[in-house]
Amino acid sequence: MQLPAPTPDALDFSAALVRRIAAEIVAADGWIGFDHFMELALYAPGQGYYSGGAHKFGAAGDFVTAPELGPAFAQALATQVAQLLALSAPAIIEVGAGSGQLASDLLRELERRDALPASYAILELSGELQARQRQTLAADVPHLLPRVDWLERLPERFDGLVLANEVLDAMPVKLVRWDATGVAERGVAVASGQFTWVDRPASGRLRECAQALAGECALPAGYLSEVSLAARAWVAEWAAIVGRGALLLIDYGFPRHEYYHWQRDAGTLMCHYRHHAHAEPFYLPGLQDITAHVDFTAIVESGCEAGFELLGYCTQSSFLFNCGLTEILARTPANDPRRYLPLAGAVNKLVSPAEMGELFKVMALGKGVSAPLLGFASGDRSATL
């Protein structure tokens, strides 16, 4: 695996986190579940990937999200956002706002449509990312910055729209291996100063979920994949908080029958470092992102059991076209190549089946929202869940 070499300071940063994780393993009698390893690697205060100071988003970071490609994503998304605000309450909470670019572009477009929310809150635990988000908003839409607040915990009650773009994929997952003798949880130990995989019999809620999956999907012996109990619990928690409104989720993933397809026998775990994707989560903890695809069937099951209704589920491509992406592209004259060509290139990445168009899905869960949502007017795939 040939990856770009980190700086000496970055290596020291990672080494400190490695020592912290190793100490946690020792304190836990020599073994922790992979979900705990992933949580520390991404979110350990001051040391994890998302809580440290590394540049993560855009061309200079490790990966590019849809908002980083340009404003077209947020401009189309604004169609659905404006409708949901009108159907519930004029308030938005964006979870995990990254660089702040989505908030900036979305607020600008909602202002253009005379549909600004009364409040826009960002739920962000990373102080470094909070500072970057403030900087982005102050530079792009300084007159709208007073509308934006930052939250460090979930509210007790909320009416309006909860927006989560590429949030579920970064939630810690458990690793499970199914074989003829039962279900094992794959965890992390330390041997000869290195992290290593060690399997133990699964128990409790994980064992129940894994056994149900094996019965539903006919998994072959030796099958390895992920189960995200954290994502299920997170969605259920929002169902208890939202009174009237919706949770809009945008992420890459599959319905369950595709996620646990017998040929996908090594799971979906993936790491991102300097725009290189690989499958080695022990490589330079704290310097790389660790993600897993989303089982959208589990998300809708958890949400609906907790009180949400499924309002729509489709590919990102269908959603953006339903929200007027073609008309947004037409705002820029094709005979202005300096402006049009970058925009057309970004739109292609957003909707192309070879890029983000098919792999990324959009799901809306809600309460008290009766009108059909514009973003799912055609191409709804709810029946596949």
Rank of each mutant, 00 (worst) to 15 (best):
A118Y: 08
A118W: 11
S119Q: 12
S119I: 04
Y120R: 04
Y120C: 02
Y120M: 06
A121F: 01
A121G: 07
A121N: 09
A121V: 08
I122G: 03
I122K: 04
I122H: 04
L123H: 10
L123N: 08
L123D: 02
E124R: 10
L125K: 14
L125G: 12
L125M: 14
L125N: 12
S126Y: 01
S126W: 01
G127H: 14
G127Y: 09
G127I: 00
G127F: 07
E128V: 11
E128I: 08
E128H: 13
L129H: 09
L129V: 01
Q130H: 07
Q130M: 13
Q130S: 10
A131P: 00
A131H: 03
A131S: 11
A131M: 07
Q133F: 02
R134W: 10
Q135N: 06
Q135T: 04
T136S: 11
T136P: 02
T136H: 05
L137I: 02
L137A: 00
L137M: 02
L137P: 02
A138I: 03
A138T: 06
A138G: 05
A139D: 10
A139E: 15
D140A: 12
D140Y: 09
D140V: 05
V141T: 11
V141L: 09
H143L: 14
H143K: 14
H143A: 15
L144P: 04
L144N: 10
L145H: 03
L145P: 00
L145N: 00
L145G: 00
P146F: 13
P146T: 12
P146I: 09
P146R: 14
R147T: 04
R147C: 01
V148S: 07
D149Q: 15
D149C: 11
D149K: 15
W150R: 05
L151F: 12
E152K: 11
R153I: 01
L154V: 07
L154F: 03
L154N: 03
P155E: 14
P155I: 13
P155K: 15
E156V: 12
E156Q: 14
R157P: 05
R157H: 15
R157D: 14
F158K: 08
F158V: 00
G160I: 00
L161I: 06
L161S: 02
L161A: 08
V162K: 07
V162E: 10
V162H: 11
V162W: 12
L163A: 06
A164F: 04
N165K: 09
N165V: 01
N165W: 10
E166R: 02
E166I: 02
V167K: 07
V167W: 14
V167N: 06
V167C: 06
L168S: 06
L168C: 01
L168E: 07
D169Y: 04
D169T: 01
A170S: 09
A170C: 06
M171S: 00
P172C: 09
P172H: 13
V173C: 15
V173A: 13
K174W: 09
K174H: 15
L175V: 06
L175I: 11
R177F: 08
D179E: 14
D179V: 03
A180L: 03
A180I: 00
A180P: 02
A180W: 03
T181A: 15
